[in-house]
Design a protein around this nucleic acid. Structure first.
Lengths: 356, 356
DNA sequence: TTGAAAGCGCTAACAT
DNA sequence: ATGTTAGCGCTTTCAA
């Protein structure tokens, strides 16, 4: 691989002239010089070393991207949109890390980014504790977090981009109530992410707004060993389905914390001999393309992923370029996609399978 | 961030001593010196700059990973296993790129890796043309390709790791034949990847081995606009299901080129009023965790993804360390997972819906 | 057992 | 309009 010195020699100019054309400082340059330089660059197939530039400038067009697990279709989708936006719109590459929701892994990732000279990082759907994030920010990282709301009243050095999770759950719940359901459950994996908290609040708010009696809207959660959410998430749904099927006075409709858990729930309900939506209605959240393929096709609350991805990328890169920009909070609105997993509740007294 | 010079000053030694301890050359060092250096490193929270090291040594612990689309659950799964193996077993980070099966994007990715000083790259499931790969290898990349067999007889500078796609399709097809099916279809997206070719050969070989009459085992394909395979792949399956349902003498069983296409097919068959496996049996390939959740649960051929990921990572890193190692081909065996989407064929004359 | 110094490939301030 | 040069933070001979 040829270096800037080779090019300078080949073009019969100095290295700074080469550097000038590489960096667009060509205004006060003789046309003929520029042409010779360009020809030399082509002739030698010269590509400037990013490593050397980084060492000199302290900048490099790369971003870090941390996800709990890229095998989770939702994170895969978000990651694709982020990588594509970073690359196509800003010429940045992305370094990916799976955290398995493990804060030591997160911290290790931040350390490595810094060592590699990468100063922008996007963190997807982490757990509640934010201290090691702020500490990474103090060490020089520009961070945007997806799917966590800023803690109200706490100054943060981090951008927060998220969907309005409260509204997402409220939308799903209100839809169910409008279809006549009076006994509802919100099903989730245990373990508190901030988005789960918001969703639970939205669920309860919708129930209360509809004047449902106390206890008519319950939260049911199931624990996972490895809390990072792909196949495990579906497993939780499946187990929870069994538990719900066995309840004496079971809910007639269920809001799942995300599509993956809903997929598991659909499968578990089927195992238990319950028909959706005849015996029980189900709403998911995420609006993955896969949710159109389940049987029945899943009614879900869709997130505006490509738009959010664009904002996320713009924020990191923008704040990297201008550190005086203050971090902010960006909330996106979800949208209910009606498909086939919701119907009116079964007539009272017919809640057991086969009675209809 | 402190530098090696800061540490040297703090410990009262020279920078080369610091460098020596950083690189484990501590054998002929006074114990007391070592301790002072280590204390200084801790005191200053010093982390050596990878960028500076790279410039000096030409090596950096990073790998490139190219996938058609990380939103595809199968690529997400492979990517997770690869990233985890690279990180946990070899301390390497990974730069991810989505190619959308576009060779200009692939080439651009290779260029950038080289510019960043990254010399190892893993390419997942690319199209047949390999010329721009070999050209990247000539420019210094160490490459391993997943899901492409080496072209027989052609010397290649690339490692090939793949599942035995011939065997995968043969397994699926033989299973169907053993259950009594005599009229089969292999369904796929059009567009030739090498793995599809192999699968088709395996499908046909199984049919022939069973003595099925000519024309009893047909290949049906559907085109996609954007050939990179996630939601589009399912869409193809869905469309093809409609086409199959409408056939006068339709196959009684179908082998899908991958699980995603099978998911679409299941949904499309349902749309068409056909019951699986009563009216038609379906086998997928990949063995995604999602295939356990469909209805009916999908019988599929599972790939040993974690093992393959480990081999892939070992090969790049091994050949990076020792360029004299020759590239090779590594074939893994798949395994049939029986679930609920396969049954005996419907009695002849009862192939139309509702006739049973 | 430790230190001095050259140099990896660039950028940019400063000279000319 | 172009050239000279001092680093950026390390590694690694070579000397002491």
């Amino acid at each position: 691989m040829s270096t800037i010195a080779d090019v300078a020699r080949h073009a019969g100019v100095s290295v700074s002239t080469i550097s000038n054309v590489l960096n667009g400082r060509v205004d006060r340059m003789r046309r003929e010089t520029l042409e010779r330089v360009e020809a030399a660059i082509v002739a030698l197939d010269f590509r400037p070393s990013r490593a050397a530039r980084l060492l000199k400038t302290g900048h490099t067009p790369m971003l870090g991207l941390l996800v709990p697990s890229i095998a989770n279709p939702m994170y895969g989708y978000i990651a694709r949109e982020i990588e594509t936006a970073a690359q196509e719109r800003h010429g940045h590459r992305v370094v990916l890390g799976n955290t398995y929701r493990n804060s030591a892994k997160e911290t290790g990732f931040f350390d490595d980014l810094l060592a590699h000279g990468i100063r922008g990082v996007i963190v997807i759907s982490s757990l509640v504790d934010e201290e090691h994030f702020e500490s990474a920010v103090r060490r020089g990282l520009v961070m945007v977090s997806y799917d966590r709301r800023a803690t109200p009243g706490v100054a943060s050095g981090i951008d927060h981009v998220s969907v309005d999770n409260f509204e997402a759950a409220r939308l799903a719940t209100a839809h169910l109530i409008a279809r006549g359901h009076q006994r509802l459950a919100f099903v989730t994996a245990s373990g508190q992410t901030m988005s789960r908290r918001e969703k639970i609040r939205g669920f309860e708010a919708a129930a209360e707004a509809a004047g449902l009696p106390r206890g008519a809207a319950q939260v049911i959660d199931g624990s996972t060993e490895s809390e990072y959410g792909d196949s495990e998430m579906a497993d939780v749904g499946r187990r929870l389905a069994g538990r719900i099927a066995a309840m004496k006075k079971r809910p007639t409709a269920v809001v799942a914390v995300n599509d993956l858990l809903a997929f598991g729930m659909l499968a578990g309900l089927r195992d238990a001999g319950l028909a959706v939506p005849r015996d029980l209605s189900v709403v998911g959240m995420d609006g993955l393309f896969l949710s159109a393929l389940t049987c029945p096709a899943l009614t879900s609350v869709r997130l505006p992923v490509p738009e959010m991805a664009r904002t996320i990328v713009e924020r990191v890169i923008g704040r990297l370029a201008d550190p005086s920009i203050a971090p902010g909070e960006f909330l996106f609105q979800p949208e209910l996609i009606e498909r086939e997993s919701v119907d009116a509740p079964p007539p009272e007294g017919a809640t057991h399978k086969g009675l209809r």
